[in-house]
Design a protein around this nucleic acid. Structure first.
Length: 424
RNA sequence: GGAGAGAUGGCUGAGUGGUCGAAAGCGCCCGCCUGCUAAGUGGGUAAGGGGGAAACCCCUUCUCGGGUUCGAAUCCCGAUCUCUCCGCCA
């Protein structure tokens, strides 16, 4: 959600920011409604003030025992009451409309974000390590996993359908080791507070982070007003919804492991092989609440915290800065982390680290106060994956595969797995 | 799932349908006082919104949504959440 004041004072900025994302917004209709709303409110409030005064006067007449005069005063309030009732109804209507429109305006791209509407316009910021070279043809992870008995895709389709995986034996153990490794590293080395959230959340939480009302079709709905989380970002960002924090509490940094559930509607056919795009997957998510003036510095450390996992595991990757048109609805600035997948022969998006500025905080009503007596301000909220397991699982298998089809376990995972080699 | 109790400001906790945005206490802030600290003492301490250059004025909010009434924290209906007991259960 954008600042109402900004919409009023600088609609051009909103229009041009949205158009950089390739979104047309109708600020004029919004402002027209807003104007009507404020005029109505001023008028309505004057009537309410009058009504409050009259009611008090009646109370005084009653107290003085002047019942006749009180009855007369009651009768003369009829018209005023009726006018207030219709005014209030109109107010509710306008409020609902304005709010619905506000939720449709996308966040504006930060000035450091490049223009563009396609992948080619993303900027490659840096890469780490070298593309691993093989003196044999590297296999894709689905072959490796199947040959080594780490993942059972056919049975996953049998029991759940496409887009699911059953991790078996050492595969299950690798999966669990990756999660433990990531959550331990982020909490114990990088200073995040661990959170283990619910997997089902109500609609208000999804509005807070921006999945609703626009993206309902991407979500699994479990019940009336209960949805499966598409990411731990949703419950964790909403932890302090409708709260006013003390300035000394900031920044808050959370790391949460959770399962994630996405319909991935419309994604059929693309990147669906193996573990690349799942309806259910696991992820360690990093979320920060920061002071507005620090959020861009915090974005850089968030990014390097996510990167640290890939470095420790020795996986080649690169960092890209998304162009405006490639960014999501809620983003002000977003880096993607892409890990190299030798078997697929491509970089795979494995993390997005984003600054939402006050966009989510405004929706979720998360504020802080700089000092006693001052007006509360919205915090800035950032998040990033640190990281998602299926693609990490895939990159580990493909990067560490041997000519004989075995896979060497990366050093940091060996104590957790209790083995240094996956073999048949 | 069944039965009952409850939800008030940062916290605890009063509140008879009328001057209650709400007693009192705690906490916090600003003074005063006191070698220091503690204690004492005076005052101030919710959020959102509208108007205004400002001082300030006004509106809304006592979980939420409806209703009764000239007037609701208070009465009625519904929802949500919490607690207690029973049942079921990893």
């Amino acid at each position: 959600m954008l600042d109402r004041q900004l919409l009023r004072t600088d609609p051009d900025l909103v229009r041009s920011g949205a158009s950089r994302k390739g979104i047309e917004v109708d600020v004029e209709s919004y402002l027209r409604l807003d104007e009507e709303y404020r005029a109505l409110l001023t008028d309505l409030q004057a009537k309410q003030a009058q009504s409050n005064q009259d009611s008090k006067a009646i109370g005084q007449l009653m107290a003085a025992g002047n019942a006749v005069a009180a009855e007369a005063a009651k009768a003369s309030m009829k018209d005023l009451k009726a006018a207030i009732a219709t005014g209030e109804e109109r107010q509710r209507e306008l409020e609902a409309k304005l709010q619905a429109m506000e939720l449709q305006f996308p966040n504006l791209p930060h000035e450091s974000v490049p223009d563009g509407f396609s992948e080619e316009k993303n900027q490659i910021i840096r890469d780490w390590g070298d593309i691993p070279q093989f003196d044999f043809e590297p296999k894709p992870h689905w072959d490796l996993a199947e040959n080594l008995g780490l993942v059972d895709f056919p049975r996953a389709s049998k029991i759940s359908g496409s887009g699911f995986a059953v991790y078996t034996g050492w595969g299950a153990r690798l999966q669990r080791a990756l999660i433990t490794f990531m959550i331990d590293h982020q909490t114990m080395q990088n200073g995040y507070a661990e959170v283990y959230p619910p997997y089902l959340v109500n609609a208000a939480s999804l509005v807070g982070t921006g999945q609703l009302p626009k993206f309902e079709e991407d979500l699994y709905k479990a019940d009336e007003d209960l949805y499966l989380i598409p990411t731990a970002e949703v419950p964790v960002t909403n932890l302090h919804r409708d709260e006013i924090l003390e300035v000394y509490q900031l920044p808050m940094r959370f790391a949460a492991y959770s399962g994630c559930f996405r319909k991935e509607a419309g994604a059929a056919g693309k990147d669906t092989r193996g573990l690349l795009r799942m309806h259910q997957f696991d992820k360690v998510e990093l979320v920060k609440y920061t002071l507005p003036e620090n959020s861009y510095d915090e974005l850089e450390t968030l990014l390097s915290d996510a990167e640290s996992i890939l470095r420790l595991l020795g996986l080649h990757y690169r960092v890209t800065l998304l162009c405006a048109g490639e960014m999501s609805f809620s983003n002000a600035k977003c880096y993607d982390l892409e890990v190299w997948s030798p078997g697929v022969g491509r970089y795979l998006e494995i993390s997005s680290c984003s600054n939402f500025e006050a966009f989510q905080a405004r929706r979720a009503n998360i504020r802080f106060r700089r000092a006693q007596g001052e007006k509360p301000e919205f915090v800035h909220i950032l998040n990033g994956s640190g990281l998602a397991t299926p693609r990490l699982f895939a990159a580990v298998l493909e990067t560490y595969q041997q000519p004989d089809g075995t896979v060497v376990v990366p050093e940091p995972l060996r104590p957790l797995i209790g083995s240094d080699l996956f073999e048949r």
